Amino acid sequence: MAAQRTPRNPADGPTRERLVDAAISVLAASGPAEVKVRRISEEAGVSTITVYHHFGGVRGLLDEVVIRGYSSLRDALLDAEASDDDPGVQLFAMALATREMARSNPHLYDMMFGLSTRGTYRATTPPTPTQHHFREAYGVLVGACERMKTAARIDIDDPEQIAAQLWSLVHGFVSLEAGGHFDGHEDPVTSVLAPMAVAQLVGNGENRVRATECARTAYMRWRTVHQD
C-alpha cells in the first residue's frame, strides 16, 4: 500500500531530517522515478534551493536516504539479536527482519541494494559514502555467526564467510519474493526461506533438528507480532 502523504510544518524538526523523511515518503509512495527536487521540497515544506543547500542535489540526498535505510536495518537486526539467547534463533530472526523491512518499503530496500536507479544514479555502485553504514548493519549478522562458531555449531573457520552465504541467501529470496516469483506458495517462508536457510546451516555443521527448531521458534515469534 502506498504511504499516505502528511502535510508538514516547515518549523517541525531539523531541515535535513525533514528532507530525508520527505524523500523516503516520496520513494515509498511513488517509486524512484518521482524522487525529484521539486516533489521532495513540496513534501518537506521547503524551497527547492534547500535541497541543494543541504545536500548539493538529489544524489547527496539519496545517499542520506540509503544511510537512513541501513541504520533502520541495523536496528531491526539488533532487535532480532535481542529476541533470543540462541544465535541460531537470532539468525533466523534476522532473516525475517530483513524480509519485513523489504516488504514495508520495497523501493527503499531496492535503492539500498542497487536494485533500482533514479536516472543515472545507482545508490550502491562502489565506491560510495554509504558502504561503511551497510557494514555496520552487516556486522550484526557476522556477530551471530561468530557466536555460532564459538558454540561449535558450525565448522567453518571464518564467521564472515557463513554470514556472506546467509546474506546472499536471504537477499536473493527477498528479491525474488518482491518480484512475485513465490506468489504460488501459500507461505514462502515455510516452503522456501526456512528450508533453504536450514540446509545452508546444516551444510556448515549445524544439527538439522536444532536448526529446524530455531527456524520454527523465530517464525512463530514473528507471526505473533506481525500476523493479523
Results as ranks from 00 to 15, higher is better:
residue 181 H to Q: 02
residue 139 G to H: 06
residue 137 A to L: 04
residue 187 D to M: 11
residue 141 L to F: 06
residue 191 S to F: 02
residue 182 F to K: 03
residue 156 I to C: 07
residue 118 R to H: 07
residue 159 P to L: 07
residue 142 V to F: 04
residue 144 A to S: 15
residue 158 D to F: 01
residue 133 H to G: 03
residue 171 H to M: 01
residue 145 C to H: 13
residue 135 R to Q: 06
residue 127 P to Y: 12
residue 184 G to C: 01
residue 117 T to H: 12
residue 122 R to Y: 11
residue 165 Q to V: 12
residue 132 H to E: 09
residue 162 I to N: 13
residue 163 A to T: 08
residue 164 A to H: 14
residue 172 G to N: 08
residue 180 G to M: 00
residue 179 G to L: 02
residue 149 K to Y: 05
residue 146 E to F: 05
residue 141 L to R: 14
residue 120 T to P: 07
residue 185 H to N: 06
residue 177 E to H: 12
residue 162 I to S: 13
residue 125 T to F: 08
residue 183 D to H: 13
residue 182 F to R: 01
residue 188 P to I: 00
residue 189 V to G: 09
residue 121 Y to I: 00
residue 140 V to N: 09
residue 185 H to K: 07
residue 134 F to W: 12
residue 125 T to H: 09
residue 173 F to V: 02
residue 166 L to S: 14
residue 140 V to I: 02
residue 140 V to C: 04
residue 118 R to T: 05
residue 129 P to S: 08
residue 141 L to I: 03
residue 117 T to M: 11
residue 172 G to Q: 09
residue 169 L to H: 12
residue 150 T to W: 07
residue 140 V to Q: 06
residue 118 R to N: 08
residue 140 V to D: 05
residue 144 A to L: 02
residue 151 A to D: 15
residue 167 W to Y: 08
residue 180 G to R: 05
residue 125 T to P: 05
residue 184 G to L: 01
residue 144 A to Q: 12
residue 184 G to S: 03
residue 161 Q to N: 10
residue 125 T to M: 10
residue 188 P to Y: 05
residue 148 M to L: 12
residue 127 P to S: 12
residue 164 A to I: 05
residue 125 T to I: 07
residue 123 A to N: 09
residue 174 V to C: 00
residue 179 G to T: 01
residue 128 T to K: 09
residue 152 A to Q: 15
residue 148 M to T: 04
residue 188 P to S: 07
residue 154 I to F: 09
residue 182 F to Q: 00
residue 174 V to T: 01
residue 191 S to W: 06
residue 159 P to K: 11
residue 180 G to E: 00
residue 187 D to C: 13
residue 116 S to C: 08
residue 184 G to N: 06
residue 146 E to M: 06
residue 127 P to R: 11
residue 148 M to H: 09
residue 140 V to R: 13
residue 117 T to K: 14
residue 156 I to R: 15
residue 131 Q to V: 08
residue 115 L to D: 01
residue 129 P to Y: 04
residue 145 C to V: 02
residue 146 E to D: 11
residue 123 A to D: 05
residue 184 G to V: 00
residue 149 K to E: 08
residue 167 W to E: 04
residue 169 L to M: 09
residue 147 R to L: 06
residue 168 S to N: 04
residue 131 Q to K: 13
residue 150 T to I: 03
residue 181 H to F: 00
residue 143 G to V: 01
residue 190 T to S: 03
residue 167 W to L: 02
residue 163 A to H: 13
residue 179 G to K: 07
residue 166 L to W: 14
residue 186 E to Y: 13
residue 149 K to I: 02
residue 118 R to G: 03
residue 141 L to K: 12
residue 185 H to A: 02
residue 183 D to W: 09
residue 134 F to V: 02
residue 138 Y to W: 11
residue 180 G to A: 03
residue 121 Y to Q: 11
residue 166 L to F: 14
residue 114 G to P: 02
residue 143 G to M: 03
residue 186 E to A: 15
residue 170 V to G: 08
residue 114 G to D: 02
residue 165 Q to N: 10
residue 119 G to V: 00
residue 178 A to F: 00
residue 130 T to A: 14
residue 161 Q to D: 10
residue 161 Q to I: 03
residue 136 E to K: 15
residue 135 R to C: 01
residue 183 D to Y: 11
residue 168 S to K: 08
residue 115 L to C: 01
residue 184 G to M: 00
residue 151 A to R: 15
residue 151 A to H: 15
residue 174 V to N: 01
residue 148 M to S: 05
residue 122 R to L: 13
residue 184 G to K: 05
residue 185 H to L: 01
residue 129 P to M: 04
residue 131 Q to I: 05
